[in-house]
């Protein structure tokens, strides 16, 4: 068995004249958390639902666990677990009953009580689903995704709408799955989630993967290097540094560091011209910067808007 559990080549999905997925190539390695990060409408759900065998691709080759998607659907379904986007289990069944219900759909079933402790819900075992908080509901959803003891788990926006605390708890559960050797494919539109949780990630926009790799690789490749920020430098700093292509953001001025010596030149120039400023700092680019740069989209509170 090779290392890649999923390989995708040239995946395309068209709806009439809309291209929802536009030539995606992807390899997912065994045991990793792979995130697809992108705004609403980027094509994340369409992509994962094709891999889950519930939508048909227009074009492209997909192999999952050695089975061709077109012919091995039945076998693939047995070995994958899915948490659909905006999933709500049965309101008037308890946590345990809900998990048992979905387990009953499979011939090979994981132990329901073990799943309950996997998502840390022992204390809510007999609570109706409708009475759970958002974060706990998502944890039930993750347990339900695990009922057939799958090798690959698809989680479509598992933390959307949760408060930061609940989100972190879900992350812990997801890390727990990885620790048990599962491969996880996750979609999200939270920067931080993709950055701290994924082993590797892809940034998706308008049906295309526009960046792919580990979080640090993606940042290194697309972040545009480090920048020096002169806080409170204002117009004086702009004039003093105008040879180095400064950019202004309010009273702050930033300059890209291309060579190591650039930092020295900046400080020298500022001193020479007697520019007053609050402080000089060196900034590493984040995934957020990469995203802004690649898509031109705005970000509010770590969440991609629009």
């Amino acid at each position: 068995m090779e290392d890649n559990v999923i390989t995708v080549r040239g995946l395309v999905k068209r709806y009439q004249d809309l291209i929802a997925v536009d030539g995606v190539d992807l390899d997912v390695r065994s045991g990793e958390i792979f995130s697809i990060l992108g705004p609403n409408g980027a094509g994340k759900t369409t992509t994962v639902e094709i891999l889950e065998c519930i939508r048909k691709a227009t074009e492209g080759e997909v192999t999952i666990l050695g089975h061709d998607l077109r012919t091995g659907g039945k076998e693939i379904r047995r070995q994958i677990g899915v948490l659909p986007q905006e999933f709500n289990a049965f309101d008037l069944l308890t946590v345990r009953e809900n998990i048992a219900f979905f387990a009953g759909m499979y011939d090979r079933q994981a132990d329901v009580d073990e799943l309950i402790s996997l998502v840390d819900l022992e204390h809510k075992r007999d609570t109706y689903f409708k009475n759970l908080s958002g974060g706990l509901k998502q944890r039930v959803g993750i347990a339900i995704a695990m009922v057939n003891d799958p090798r690959i788990v698809f989680l479509d926006e598992p933390t959307t709408g949760l408060d930061p605390g609940a989100r972190r708890e879900v992350w812990e559960v997801i890390r727990g799955l990885r620790a048990k050797g599962r491969t996880i494919i996750l979609t999200t539109h939270y920067m931080e989630e993709a950055e701290v949780l994924s082993d590797r990630l892809a940034i998706m926009n308008q049906g295309k993967f526009i960046a792919l790799g580990s979080p640090s690789e993606v940042v290194a490749q697309h972040g545009g290097g480090r920048t020096c920020v002169i806080r409170g430098g204002g117009e004086a700093a702009m004039r003093s540094l105008h040879d180095m292509g400064p950019e202004r953001d309010g009273d702050d001025v930033s300059v890209r560091i291309v060579h190591k010596e650039d930092l020295v030149s900046i400080v020298t120039a500022l001193n020479r011209d007697g520019v007053e400023y609050e402080e000089v700092m060196l900034k590493r680019p984040t995934l957020e910067d990469v995203f802004l740069k690649l898509t031109g989209k705005s970000i509010e509170g770590g969440e991609i808007s629009g």
Binding site: I54, R77, E86, F87, N88, F90, M105, Y106
Partner: peptide, 13 residues
């Protein structure tokens, strides 16, 4: 609307 059908579609049912 609750995604239960989408979930069931990924099961052998």
């Amino acid at each position: 609307n609750n995604g239960i059908f989408r979930k069931l579609a990924t099961t052998p049912m």
